[in-house]
């Protein structure tokens, strides 16, 4: 089945949910509301003539710099593919800024587990009903969600773990047990200045 056809069927079946259908280079994306996302995914997976059995990808997007139209602040993008029927579709669920959460797809594909954790970790969208909603790539005590547009490329501050480690290095140096390889240049020049004075 053509992707466009699937998108239209989806619109017929969930009339209140589908906001827009967009087509780019033959790939069809359906912008939907977040409320019934699990129903939509389940319908796509279980309808025999659609049968989207392969959960290719999930990722979060920050729409901060391209707001307008049907786009809310965040969206969660699901890329689905049907292995037996060889067609694909993209579902883009819109998530508002003040309540950045969406229902989990782990009940349908348990492989979505890590995708959703990554999305939570880097984008700050949490998933309701997820069995293990923790950070995955970043340390547990990291502050902020780096893939948001307002997060600077360089990061905001040193990670607390690294700061702690640097303090340890300084402590060890007092006993002559470290060569101080972890110190930044600023700190080095500071200590040099201290030695001079």
């Amino acid at each position: 089945m053509e992707s466009m056809e699937i998108a239209e069927k989806l619109q017929d079946h969930f009339p209140g949910e589908v906001l827009e259908i967009c087509d780019f280079h033959g790939q069809v994306g359906v912008i939907v509301k977040r409320d019934r996302i699990v129903d939509i995914l389940r319908w796509l997976r279980d309808t025999p003539e659609i049968k989207m059995d392969h959960f290719m990808d999930l990722c979060g997007v920050d729409n901060k710099k391209r707001l307008g139209g049907n786009l809310l602040r965040f969206e969660v993008v699901y890329n689905l593919y049907s292995i037996p029927l060889r067609h694909s579709i993209r579902i883009r669920a819109q998530v508002p800024e003040n309540d950045a959460c969406i229902d989990t797809a782990t009940g349908l594909w348990c492989g979505a587990n890590w995708h959703e954790r990554e999305c939570y970790d880097l984008m700050g969208i949490s998933f309701n009903g997820h069995p293990d909603m923790r950070r995955i790539l970043l340390p547990d005590d990291w502050v902020g969600h780096p893939l948001r547009k307002e997060y600077p490329l360089k990061g905001r501050e040193e990670w607390s773990g690294l700061v702690e480690l640097k303090h340890k290095v300084v402590e060890l140096q007092e006993f002559g047990l470290s060569d101080g390889t972890l110190r930044t240049e600023a700190e080095q020049s500071q200590t040099e200045g201290n030695e001079k004075s």
Partner: peptide
């Protein structure tokens, strides 16, 4: 440049490598 979104995957030795 073109405006839009695209997901393209290829078969790398480990499995499906997709770029969105």
């Amino acid at each position: 440049y073109p405006v839009g979104d695209i997901y393209v995957s290829t078969e790398v030795p480990k499995g499906e490598l997709g770029f969105y």
